[in-house]
Simulated assay, not measured.
Amino acid sequence: MVKRINIDDFLKMQREENLPIIDVRSPIEYSHAHIPDAYNVYLFNDEERKNVGTIYKQVGRKEAVLKGLEYVSVRMTDILKSIDDIAKNYNNTNKILMHCFRGGMRSESVAWLCSSYGYDVYVLEGGYKKYRNYVLSSFEKKYRIYLLTGRTGSGKTLILKRLKDKGFNVIDLEKIAKHKGSAFGWIDEGEQPSQEQFENLLSCELSKYDINSVLWFEDESLLIGKRAIPKSLFNNMRDAEKIIYLDIPQECRAFYIVNTYGKYSIDDLRESILKIKKRLGGERLKESLELLDSGKMYECVLNMLYYYDKAYKLSITDDEERLVSIECKNQNFDEIVDSILARVKC
């Protein structure tokens, strides 16, 4: 059986019935961006897709179909075996979700093959393109946001992790972007996802929570590494329902940064410092690098915090109705979380 369904039903079935999503686009399309947790079982490889597309445009549909059948005929068994292997991870379900780019010939062809083999196939109407419309529209919604802010080294990420462990709804933008946000944020994080995949992952996280529930975010710049927070969501963050400002002494923040980044190689740290050389200025850059090379990491961090603290602006507001200032004498994160929750109603 093959049934075409809309994007809302498609994602609802994935979520509620725990069904696998089969993405039949080419590997290069999938690797650029895809629905989170989807599996790539391609109909055409990258070169084959290019060839079929060229024939379709230059010769005609029938000739393109014949060339496509030529490619696929030798791989039909492998396609079915791949889907069988995936289904084993879902209690050998005979129900699968499927899509191509526009919901056209590729998904129709593989859906027919899988249906003939015994699967119930639910094909996404409009394909991945329709999913992208869904993703972009999700950022236009008005979310209830509590924004955690504070100067560099305040430990905001760890505090949000503790809040998440306590059951609060946390959207970890830095984890999704694979970047910690600062000039040092790329270290040990690997390659960032594409902008499109970052948006897909972020939309997926947002969809896990009721629109009326409070979502906790860390205050970020528009760019996290090379990935941009969608503008509508970024504006929503700027207009947060509550802004929790952590007022932590510079010395404590310097120790936190040393403990976080001090384990990394001198070469990576040097490269990170050089990224902000224009902002540090020649003299402060020279001092920072000399301190780093001499093993005085704490002093190096203090020297750079001059730049970071000078550049910092309390991101949002002095509106007393929205701003909650938490004065912290140290970085006992459990105590800080308790202080936040004592001051903020969720």
Rank of each mutant, 00 (worst) to 15 (best):
D8H: 15
F10R: 03
L11N: 11
M13W: 02
E16H: 03
R25D: 02
S26W: 01
E29R: 02
A33C: 11
D37Y: 13
Y39A: 05
N45V: 00
V52M: 11
Y56E: 10
R61G: 04
K62R: 12
K62G: 14
G68A: 00
Y71M: 00
R75D: 10
T77R: 13
D85V: 10
A87W: 07
M98D: 10
R106S: 05
E108N: 15
S109T: 15
C114L: 15
C114Q: 10
Y119S: 13
G127T: 08
Y134G: 02
K156G: 06
L158G: 15
I159V: 14
K164H: 13
I171Q: 04
L173S: 09
E174P: 11
K175V: 03
I187G: 00
Q195P: 03
Q195V: 09
Q195T: 03
L206D: 08
Y209T: 07
N212I: 05
V214Y: 09
L215S: 11
A228N: 03
F234S: 10
N236V: 02
E241F: 13
Y264L: 00
L269Y: 01
L269W: 02
R270M: 05
K275Y: 03
G282F: 08
R284K: 12
S288M: 00
L289T: 07
D293H: 10
G295W: 01
N303W: 00
Y308D: 07
Y312R: 10
I326D: 00
C328Q: 00
D334N: 13
